Computed example of a mutant assay.
Amino acid sequence: MHNHKKILLIALAICGQVIAQSPARVELVAVESRNPTRTIALPAELAPYLQADIEARVPGYIEQVLVDRGSRVRRGQVLVELSAPEMKAQTAAAEANLHQAEADQSQAEAQAAGIESTFARLQEASKTPGAIAGNELVQSEKERDAAQSLVSSRKAATRAASERLRVAKEMEGYLRVTAPFDGTITDRFVHPGILVQGGTHTPLLKLQQTAHLRLTVPVPESYAGHVVSGTPVNFHVSSQPGKTYSAKIARISGALDAQSRTMTVELDAYNKDGSLAPGMYPTVDWPVSSAEPLLLVPATSVVSTTERTFIITPLNGHAHWVNVRKGAAFGDQVAIRGEIKQGDKVVKRASDDLREGTPLP
């Protein structure tokens, strides 16, 4: 009885060992062929879409600075007011000259109207023989022509005075320095009481458009041939960890920098929540696509040893090792090259434990 139990235990142990050594069912997948896209991390820089150093066009004393660093302004908004009394005096003198010119024109027009009326009466009377002296009509005509010439001269003087007043008012208007576009004042250089000289490239303020930004990316030469305008691209900034921003490719320089061998590409980024700022250095998830279809298999299908890199395919129901060259990874897949083609079956989870010629269950 004891021997029967011993034999039974040995049989069970052998059976269990056979079961344990039976190979698990091997999962096969097909080789794919497609043009995959992956992303690489590229450094970039954010810059304002528009920026300007706000300067005075005319000399004057700073009367008021109506904005400061951080002020959001609209196009046409007054930023700085200057004071220049001599300019106001010039405007007042131009206004007075215009009023005088208009009065002189009115007087000349009234005189010309009277002379024209007299000439018309004499001309009508001359139709009756002997009614007026022969040279009287000629003299009246000359007076009419002189009066008309004077009116023309007075009108020209009025136009000239009006133009001088327009220029004077335009120059006086430059005492109110306005914003050329919507944006944010990012720096201030002046205070009330300072004398500034117009046209000397001395900035009063710095204005930048921060709601719309330029994302500048230096794209390496090897990836520069597949940049497409309008492509959306994600990017990240260190000040907002975990947050993803999006921009679109808008401007492509089309030329490589001789030193860095990169091509500058600009993207439009919109700073809706104000969390981005010019001068930041984001990291861009730059999309890279292959120029021709690649053969792709799961990354777990490729086995690399010190001697070779291979995949395992079924051949007449047995494992067959096929040498390949491993390429770029695209998610959980990897590109390969070798004696393999689209649609061939490969072992999904391969290892060198599955030896050449091993039966595949």
Rank of each mutant, 00 (worst) to 15 (best):
N3F: 10
K5S: 13
I7W: 12
L8R: 14
A11P: 00
A13T: 05
A13N: 05
V18W: 09
S22G: 04
V26W: 06
E27D: 15
E27G: 02
L28T: 07
E32K: 04
R34D: 09
N35S: 07
P48Q: 02
Y49E: 12
E63R: 10
Q64T: 14
L66Y: 07
R69N: 11
G70H: 05
R75I: 12
V78K: 13
L82D: 01
L82V: 06
S83R: 15
S83C: 01
A92G: 11
A93G: 15
A94R: 03
L98M: 10
E102S: 11
A103E: 09
D104A: 14
Q105G: 12
A120V: 12
R121T: 08
E124H: 04
K127H: 06
G130M: 06
G130H: 12
I132G: 11
I132T: 03
A133E: 06
G134L: 08
N135C: 00
E136S: 09
S140M: 10
D145L: 15
D145A: 07
A147W: 02
V151Q: 09
R154N: 05
T158Y: 13
T158G: 11
A160R: 05
L165V: 01
L165F: 03
R166I: 00
K169N: 15
K169P: 02
M171F: 09
V177D: 01
V177E: 00
P180V: 06
F181S: 06
T184K: 09
H191I: 11
G193E: 04
I194V: 14
I194W: 09
P203M: 08
L205A: 06
Q208W: 00
Q208L: 00
A211H: 14
R214M: 00
R214H: 05
V217L: 08
V217S: 02
P218I: 01
G225L: 03
G225M: 06
H226I: 07
T231Q: 11
V233Y: 12
N234F: 00
S239A: 07
Q240P: 05
Q240E: 12
P241D: 09
I252W: 05
S253F: 06
L256S: 10
L256R: 13
D257L: 01
A258T: 13
Q259P: 02
S260L: 07
T262Y: 00
T262M: 01
D273G: 01
G279Q: 09
G279T: 08
P282E: 11
P282H: 00
V284H: 01
P287R: 03
P287T: 11
P287Y: 04
S289G: 10
L294E: 15
L295H: 03
L295R: 03
L296M: 15
P298F: 02
A299M: 15
T300Q: 08
S304M: 07
S304N: 09
E307L: 10
I311P: 07
T313E: 10
T313G: 02
G317A: 07
H318K: 13
A319Y: 08
V324K: 05
R325D: 09
G327W: 05
A328Q: 11
A329H: 14
A329F: 05
F330D: 04
G331W: 11
I336P: 13
K345M: 13
V347G: 04
R349L: 14
A350F: 07
S351E: 06
D352P: 00
G357C: 04
L360E: 03
